[in-house]
Amino acid sequence: MSFAESPSRIVYLCSVLFMLVSPNALKAGAKYKDLYKRPTQIPYPSSNTYSDARMILGRTLFFDPRLSGSNWISCATCHNPAFSWGDGLAKGIGDGMKDLSRRTPTILNLAWGELMFWDGRAESLEAQALGPVASTGEMNLPIDQLLAKISKIQGYKTLFKGAYPEEGITKDTISKAIATFERSVVSGKAPFDRWIEGDETAISEKAKHGFTLFNEKASCSQCHSGWRFTDEGFYDIGLAGDDKGRGKILGDIETLQYAFKTPTLRNVDHRAPYMHNGSETSLTKVVDFYNKGGDVTRGSKSEHVKPLLLSDDEKDALIAFLKTLTSIDAATPVTMLPR
């Protein structure tokens, strides 16, 4: 069989035709796809390795409102799985139904996170876990009272014995159990992931164009990078307000004034409103905000936030792409709380 008649020739001609007809699809696929592949395993630290007993204990504590002074607020009150592990509010609500100063961040995919909270003030999930419990504005339960309360519940004695048999009920084991559960909260495969794996029909051509814009003209990937769509960095994106964010933690660096952690974009269309202060009510408004280069100009503002000059069609494509990041995740089991 000559080359002219062979299947190889047909494949070759099809490839050339594809390159001529669909340069954008090829460009996006070839150039960026490798940067967005999902990991295959959840990382657990050697100081707090995974076991089912630890995850189940952590999940039980996470959903238990007795971890608050009022016996009415659990971690899941604000990090509600039905709201993609947020609360759907512009600002969180704490003890006494008082508004908090920032929006509740999702806990999705934090096993790969670096510093916790919007301002990065906790080094790890273990270090973060009891911060909101003890905070007077949030769950308002001092740690000594937490330990006394949990230790009196017979069912918890059994759960802790199974999870941390050598350590018992302590501040550390409560933190470690909650952190283990939180690491297990991972967003499932979204249409975007199926496209990354090679299914060209998984997302629309419009969304593919949006992905190219995301990586190029709109430069969203400068900060929203990798499969979780966050670089874990801290930036002032030019939102109005007097909350200095990371600047309160590391005060002597100008760039960190008004800077907040880059949030993940996984399941982002289920997590309105947006920004650390909940000030943008829709993805359309978020894209408009970035398209004009933010609201405020000041010395600390990131060099990456500047007018983007996106057309209406380009903004639509960007939003179409963002909507492909949403997965339909398995329901979280309702935990029976020990008595």
């Binding site: 670096e114 510093l115 990065g120 670089d231 874990e232 960190l256 800077a259």
Partner: peptide, 8 residues
């Protein structure tokens, strides 16, 4: 040592 902007 760390980068205060990019903690990774």
């Amino acid at each position: 040592l760390r980068c205060a902007i990019h903690p990774k």
